[in-house]
Amino acid sequence: MDGVLILLGWIGLFAPTALGAIGSIVGCARAGQAACGAMLDVESGYGRFVGLSALPSSQIIYGIVVMFSLQRTISADNGPGLFGIGVLCGLALMFSAMFQGACCASAINVSKHKPEIFGLSVAPAAIVEGFAVFAFIFALVLSGNIPA
C-alpha cells in the first residue's frame, strides 16, 4: 500500500509541469498557427501576432514553480496530498493554456483587419490567465500544509 501512495506522490509532484507543458504546447500551437495565417493576409503588425501567440506559455512556468514548491521526500504520509494538489493544479493549468490558445487565435483573427480592437480582443485571454493564476497561487499556499 505504501508503494502505491509513494507512486501517487511522484505523479502529483510532476503533474503540474507535465500537464502545464501539454497545455502550453496545444495553446501556443493553435495561436501560432493563427498568427502564421494572419501574416499571409496583412502587410504589417506581425510582431504582436507572434507575441500574442506566446501567451499560453506562462502555464508551464506556473507548473514548474508548483513542482518545486511540492518537492520534498515523498512518503506514504504526504503522497496523497501531493497527488491531489499536483494533479488538480496541473489539470487547471493544462485546460487554461489550451483554451487561452483558442482565445488568442480568435483575437488574432478578429484584430488583423481591425487593429483598434486588438487590446479589447486580448481581454478574454487575460481573463483565462487569471483563473490559471488562481490555481497556481492556491496550490502554492496549500503545499505548505503537506507534511515534509
Binding site: A29, C36, G37, A38, L40, D41, A105, N109, H113
Partner: peptide
C-alpha cells in the same frame, strides 16, 4: 485537424 492557419489567412467577409 487544425484549420487555424487557413481561417486566419482569409480576409473577413
Amino acid at each position: 485537424r487544425s484549420y487555424h492557419t487557413l481561417i486566419a489567412s482569409l480576409p473577413p467577409l
